[in-house]
């Protein structure tokens, strides 16, 4: 088993939330991703043991969803939306600038393992197009210039936690609407920030 006790404990906690073990598959894959930055075959074997399905069944789910990465990602996963609303609001220029700055093509990771860049389909922030996600923390109304500034900031300060609201304040523009409750937690890895996954920290 390549998972340490802490992670296994976490996994068992997640499994308990569901009436059937295999229902915990999704969150467990996020957990695996928070550990390695991608879903490794080792993690798949661990998860298959934990939830009692075969490895290939886990693999099938993990390769179906694009948020589960099959290759290692950098510290920051930059997802720029390329769908219709963002495209109309000049996301292609954002994409160009980010690619220029990072020197990355789509789905590539740089040598320092700092950035992974991807142009993605709709991330549900059409009201604030163009939108960008850093480790699944959404920033709206991002101009090409601000996109560069954000990348520079990430590169220079290398924050361990990225927080949507903070980035929105510094690099965002028009916001569609306030997302539900105020959330000043952030994401600590390339998996979405969830309390149950321990991939978030409440900032003081």
């Amino acid at each position: 088993m390549s998972w340490d006790d802490k992670l296994l404990k976490q996994a068992k906690k997640i499994i308990k939330l569901y009436p059937q073990k295999r229902s915990a598959l999704g969150p467990l894959l996020h957990l695996a991703q928070s550990k390695d930055g991608y879903i490794s075959d080792d993690s798949i074997s661990v998860i298959s043991d934990l939830v009692g399905i075969t490895e290939v069944q886990v693999k099938s789910v993990s390769t179906f969803y694009s948020m589960y990465k099959q290759e290692p990602t950098g510290k920051y996963l930059l997802s720029v939306c390329k769908s219709i609303s963002c495209e109309i609001n000049n996301s292609s220029e954002v994409i160009n600038k980010v690619q220029e700055f990072t020197g990355l093509n789509n789905n590539e990771t740089d040598e320092d393992e700092l950035f992974t860049f991807e142009a993605v389909e709709c991330i549900g922030a059409c009201g604030g197009a163009p939108a960008v996600q850093v480790n699944y923390e959404t920033v709206e109304g991002v101009t090409p210039e601000n996109a560069i500034n954000m990348c520079k900031w990430l590169k220079e300060t290398k924050p361990d936690v990225v927080v949507a609201d903070e980035m929105q304040e510094n690099f965002g523009g028009v916001k569609s609407f306030d997302w539900a409750i105020q959330d000043n937690s952030g994401s600590t890895s390339t998996a979405p920030g969830f309390q149950t996954l321990n991939t978030t920290k409440v900032k003081k």
């Binding site: 399905i53 075969t54 290939v56 069944q57 693999k59 099938s60 390769t63 179906f64």
Partner: peptide, 10 residues
């Protein structure tokens, strides 16, 4: 009952 083949990717 031995699901050792599955769809991979999408």
């Amino acid at each position: 009952g031995d699901p050792l083949i599955e769809f991979i990717q999408r």
